[in-house]
Design a protein around this nucleic acid. Structure first.
Length: 1025
RNA sequence: GGGGACGUGGCGGAAUUGGCAUACGCAUCAGCUUUAGGAGCUGACGCCCGCAAGGGCUUGUGGGUUCAACUCCCACCGUCCCCACCA
């Protein structure tokens, strides 16, 4: 008998599988498909570790099982190879990332093959392959075309060590997800993907994923963070005088007289289009007089002609506020140049340079702009000037706004319009630039009568915009500075005592009570959520209460607590009541219940809205080793996408990769690459030098697997239709609010574009628990507790490694590494080997009934366990089975011939109960998904001709599972008194009679009357006395 | 502070429409075999009392429902994960 040589047989079968291409998945096969996916790895220099093994082995067991069950299975793999480690290594060693990546891929692939994983290697992909990232770039451009990829300057998370911006999802406890450095805030120009536009769909979609664990769904739900409430504007009034002398001519300005409004539309506009009807009615509802003339020659307007027209037809005085939208702003400026004196001028997206981002000619506008402006006169004739520009404008550049701001010496307000160029039907930003107000989001509009003060976040533009009116500007500025620093510190360790400073000189009006209330700046209000401002209701909000107590702000109770709450809350010190109740001190709403008042009051004072915690996805990184963002910046045309025919935009091969730390990518220093001709106008332009985040390539990779070689599209729709959605996706819990959310977003978007065939990418998600080091700590190189799986492959073999890993515990549980039981699994496989090699049993004509019974039970158990991913109990079941059929048995030894008996006794070789080849084969099929190499080898040994992969999964016979007799537990009052062996299916009368004969039962029932008998067939009988 | 998962021998763990708690494996002990080591084989192995027969206790703690609770309900204690001043 040969010894079980794992090295030899594993190498042999791995070669057979490769050369026979045993695991190739066939497109459009007649069989039903199963798409089984594991998260593709980042090929690091350290190789694959136990953390990779777990989902891969689980996926492999599942794939091999499903192939034998008659499915066309695709089980693909690839490499998520862009990212920081390769780049950091390149910086340190001077080796190009593409070289280290190729080496690491080679090594990791070798490991995977050594584990016997049944991947379809013909579908292997690599995110750093230009043939792959061409399509990542192409997909990015689809987002851009639909306005879901945009460029904006904002305060973003910045890792000072990796010198790159980070997405919200990549910041864990205020630290960089990659390197653990405390993240800073930095103002940077960034690309964003507008994932917030899909917040509702991402949330809705979760409802149609019944096979996702609720923990995963809940975590995504919390991350998206929907809350329903109301948006309410609080008008802001400023004291009548500028407190700070900001220029020579500053004069005290009376503001008590009511303003009137003149609205001038732009080119191709009319007072009946876009935002104008809405603005007009909003202003008129507040009791203001509004003029909104239809200008002459709107197609190709002439600024002088239109100014003359306004002078002739409109009334203007020192209380007039002129609002000029786009070209209307140019006309307004002409009016002031001609000596019209007004109260306030508001320019909304008004052109200055005469150049446009979309590069379309607008000769009349350009001509008007080229004349220039007399800013000195304009400043003299308008007491106040406001500037509002749209960050998503694709016609009028932001630099025009900056030019106005510089020449007029007034702050520029940058805001995002509902539509680009503030051309939506309602544009609240425009309205608030005309009459300043602070917009708040609240989930409790029913408490508005209790709003006794307001708080804005330190970043709130109202502060900068009303700089000149704020009396205690130094204090305010000092506070803003200190809170900026605070956010860089580890705030969790500090007590969260609230601090703030009142903005003196400005007041807000509570729209419900009409009272003046103070406005504070405090960093307990976050700029990143809602509107960055709150109405503070100290009586009914814990944070507002704490703040009000500290700064002695007034507290108005507007909710009557329910009786039962009042009874138990005799709290000292007093606490705010935050629950619902009945309104009081709330004017006409007094007496209503919170739930009824909320929608009514939301409508009365503002409008019902929904807020999400989800932020837009910061999609650019200032690093080398990533997909270049396929965009060109042209001084004439602005942002120009790289034409599809020019994709991919390849990463240049360079010697220096160091991040600059300036917020520019290292690519910016490569002149030859950066300088290009604009694809539209052919003038000198520059490439976008930021690269995409690591999550880009993985946001669509499962689609590429369906059609990995396609040169014409990212994946043929017919092939997608056959393979997608993914049936089971194995992966880590840590990706729940990263990759898993991002890729759902991409898929939902592409589905809306008709580019993918299934709405959701993954039908079932199967997360796995992490494997801790032997010390119970998370495995990491720095702790030195990393376990290399290759050691076990070498010492005990891949089959042992696989089964051992599965045997550690339930797939979802976190487990500490403990390699002591490796030998237990190896012993088991040795015994399987030995059992098979006792040839006389292999040659049996019949299978022993005990074996047959055990085998059919095993078929049932393994089938059910794989389907429910309970791999650990499968391994137990195999061991129990072998124990049943393979043991030293005196009776068995006696039945042998004398010489055999002698051998048997002398070597104490355990002997097996008889089993036929046919049944033994069934056992090998069951074992095959778990220990494929040894199963193949043993099957061949007993005469098998083809790979087990082509065999059919066995069915179990219900009749063979039923035991002839069963043990029945006899209880009195639920306490065990004895046991009985009876025929399976025995009735109560028979069992009861036998049970009452038991000595222990007889004794216990002396002087007792059985009141009731509980009988569970084949299980127990319980006498209640 | 909010949300979620969980708590069973010396250890990893098994058992859920409520029905023999501790399967399977590791470790430990004893026996056989072996020149030895190892491997293999056989057996014991939750805790307490007892020479034994036997008895009592036991699934984080306390209560409840039930003929019967690891399993269901309530309260508490503890561990882990996620989010965290989210208006």
């Amino acid at each position: 008998m040969q010894r079980y040589n794992h090295k030899k047989i594993e190498a042999k079968w791995q070669k057979v599988w490769l050369t026979k291409k045993a695991f190739l998945a066939k497109d459009f096969s007649k069989k039903p498909k199963k798409y089984i996916l594991v998260e593709f790895p980042y090929p690091s220099g350290a190789g694959l570790h136990m953390g990779h093994l777990r989902p891969y082995v689980a996926g492999d067991v599942y794939s091999r099982f499903q192939r034998m069950r008659g499915y066309e299975v695709v089980f693909p793999i690839g490499w998520d190879a862009f990212g920081l480690p390769a780049e950091n290594y390149a910086i340190k060693m001077g080796v190009h990332p593409s070289i280290t990546t190729a080496q690491n891929v080679k090594n990791a692939k070798k490991q995977m093959l050594s584990w016997g994983l049944s991947f379809d290697w013909s579908r292997e992909i690599n995110t750093t392959d230009p043939n792959y990232y061409k399509w990542t770039q192409w997909l990015f451009l689809q987002f851009y075309k639909k306005g879901l990829a945009y460029e904006a300057t904002g305060l973003i998370n910045w890792c000072p060590k990796d010198k790159t911006g980070l997405a919200n999802e990549e910041v864990i406890d205020g630290k960089c997800e990659r390197c653990g450095t405390v993240v800073e805030k930095k103002e940077l120009r960034q690309w964003y993907l507008k994932i917030t536009a899909y917040a509702e769909k991402l949330l809705e979609g979760l409802k149609n994923l019944p096979e996702w664990p609720s923990a995963v769904k809940l975590q995504q739900e919390n991350w998206i963070g929907k809350s329903v409430g109301a948006e309410i504007s609080f008008p802001v009034i400023m004291s009548g005088y500028n407190q700070r002398r900001h220029s020579e001519g500053a004069q005290p300005t009376e503001e008590s007289l009511k303003p009137n409004f003149l609205i001038l539309h732009g080119r191709n506009g009319s007072p009946d289009s876009h935002l104008f009807p809405w603005i007009k009615s909003e202003l008129e509802n507040k009791g203001f007089k509004v003029q909104a003339p239809l200008m002459p020659n709107t197609q190709e307007p002439d600024d002088e002609e239109q100014a003359e027209f306004v002078l002739k037809n409109c009334k203007m005085d020192e209380n007039t506020v002129i609002v000029g939208h786009s070209f209307g702003g140019v006309v307004a400026l002409r009016l002031l140049e001609q000596g019209v004196r007004i109260k306030k001028l508001v320019l909304v997206s008004t052109p200055f340079s005469g150049k446009f981002l979309d590069n379309k000619p607008r000769p009349s506008v350009t001509k008007a702009c080229k004349k220039g402006f007399d800013f000195k006169k304009i400043k003299q004739n308008a007491k106040q000037i406001g500037l509002l520009f749209d960050t998503s404008d694709y016609v009028v550049p932001m630099s025009d706004g900056e030019s106005f701001a510089k020449n007029l010496n007034v702050p520029l307000v940058k805001a995002r319009g509902q539509e680009p160029h503030f051309s939506g039907l309602k544009e609240p930003e425009v309205l608030s630039s005309i009459i300043p107000s602070i917009k708040v989001f609240t989930t409790r509009p029913d408490t508005i009568f209790g709003a006794t003060y307001m708080v804005v976040a330190p970043e709130h533009p109202i502060i900068e915009n009303s700089k000149l009116k704020i009396e205690n500007w130094e204090d305010v500025q000092k506070y803003i500075e200190s809170s900026k620093k605070k956010s860089e510190m580890d705030r969790s360790s500090e007590g969260k005592e609230k601090t703030g400073v009142e903005l003196k000189g400005i007041k807000a009006i509570n729209p419900a009570t009409k009272e003046d209330i103070p406005v504070w700046v405090a960093d307990y209000v976050l700029w990143g959520y809602g509107t960055g401002a709150i109405m503070a209701v100290p009586a009914h909000d814990e944070r507002d209460f704490e703040f009000a107590i500290k700064y002695n702000l007034s507290i108005t109770d507007v909710i009557s607590k329910p009786e039962e709450v009042r009874m138990i809350s005799v709290a000292i010190p007093p606490v705010p009541y935050v629950g619902p109740g009945v309104l009081k001190n709330s004017g006409e709403f007094s007496g209503m219940k919170s739930e009824d008042a909320i929608p009514k009051m939301a409508a009365a004072f503002g409008k019902a809205t929904t807020q999400f915690k989800l932020r837009d996805w910061v999609f650019s990184r200032q690093r080398y080793w990533g997909e270049p963002i396929p965009i060109i910046h042209c001084p004439k045309c602005g942002i120009v996408p790289v034409p599809e025919k020019d994709l991919p935009v390849k990463l240049p091969n360079v010697k220096k990769y160091e991040p600059t730390g300036t917020g520019e990518s290292p690519l910016a220093a490569i002149d030859k690459w950066v300088n290009v001709k604009c694809p539209v106008c052919k003038t000198s332009a520059k490439r976008e030098t930021n690269t995409m985040p690591q999550w880009a390539g993985s946001s669509w990779y499962w689609l590429r697997y369906t059609d990995p070689k396609n040169k014409k599209s990212f994946a043929d729709l017919k092939k997608q239709k056959y393979w997608t959605p993914v049936d089971v996706y194995f992966g880590g819990m840590e990706h729940t609010t990263l990759h898993l959310l991002y890729s759902r977003f991409w898929n939902l978007f592409l589905y809306d574009q008709g580019l993918v065939s299934s709405r959701e990418p993954y039908s079932k998600r199967k997360p796995h628990g992490i494997i801790l080091g032997p010390d119970g700590e998370k495995m990491s190189k720095s702790r030195g507790n990393v376990v290399n799986p290759q050691h076990i492959v070498a010492s005990h073999g891949a089959d042992t490694l696989r089964m051992f890993e599965l045997f550690l515990g339930p797939h979802e549980d976190t487990i500490a590494w403990n390699d002591k039981s490796v030998v237990g699994v190896k012993r088991f496989l040795d015994r399987v080997w030995n059992y098979t090699n006792i040839s006389n049993y292999v040659d049996s004509k019949v299978t022993d009934e005990r074996v047959s019974n055990a085998l059919h039970k095993l078929i049932k158990k393994i089938t059910e366990d794989i389907e429910s991913f309970s791999f650990n109990t499968s391994i137990s079941a195999f061991m129990s089975f072998l124990k049943e059929v393979y043991k030293t048995n005196e009776e068995l030894i006696e039945s042998k011939s004398a010489s055999e008996r002698e051998i048997g006794k002398k070597n104490i070789i355990a002997l097996g109960l008889p089993i036929t080849k046919k049944d033994l084969k069934k056992f090998f099929i069951l074992l095959y998904p778990f220990a494929p190499h040894v199963s193949e080898e043993l099957y061949q040994l007993i005469g098998g001709k083809k790979t087990l992969q082509l065999e059919k999964w066995p069915e179990y016979d219900e009749a063979k599972i039923i035991d002839e007799t069963v043990e029945i537990v006899v209880q009195i009052n639920g306490r065990i008194k004895g046991k009985l062996i009876v025929d399976t299916g025995s009735g109560q009368d028979q069992v009861s009679a036998q049970a009452l004969e038991l000595e222990a039962v007889k004794q216990a029932l002396v002087n007792e009357i059985v009141k009731r008998t509980v009988f569970v067939p084949n299980r127990l009988i319980n006498f209640v006395v």
